[in-house]
């Protein structure tokens, strides 16, 4: 199971800014290991964010996203103490959801 995400969400002037750092190797499937074998692809394919249960972002990643992906976005609304959850699914079907309170 993957490590938790680091999520920071802060509300200011009616806009909530979210920064997410995921922990994932993001293997492209094009890299070879030391013995010359291709390392199979393993990467996050989908990411979604919900604010109090309402979806505020849906993203799809390809293999070109860097290892331990970083993502920042903003949405209108959101108050201190509201719940913000971020979920991802990877190409092997692994999933992870983490939740924070908006600061």
């Amino acid at each position: 199971m993957a490590d938790p995400m680091k999520i920071r969400a802060s509300a200011k002037d009616g806009i909530t800014e979210v920064k997410v750092l995921m922990s994932h190797e993001m293997e492209t499937g094009q890299r070879k290991d030391s013995s010359g074998n291709l390392v199979p692809a393993h990467f996050i394919t989908e990411i979604t964010a919900e604010h109090n249960g309402r979806q505020v972002l849906a993203g799809q990643f390809g293999t070109a996203i860097s290892k331990n992906p970083y993502l920042a976005f903003k949405f209108k609304g959101g108050a201190k103490g509201d719940k913000l959850s971020v979920s991802w699914v990877d190409s092997k079907g692994d999933k992870r959801t983490d939740e924070v309170q908006i600061a």
């Binding site: 972002l57 993203g59 799809q60 390809g62 070109a64 996203i65 993502l71 976005f73 903003k74």
Partner: peptide
């Protein structure tokens, strides 16, 4: 294609990430 994002109403058109090149 590195990434695509769908923004529901209310989400600002502003995203940042990191890509491999």
């Amino acid at each position: 294609l590195a990434a695509s994002f769908m923004l529901p109403v209310g989400t600002e058109p502003s995203v940042q990430t990191r890509v491999k090149m």
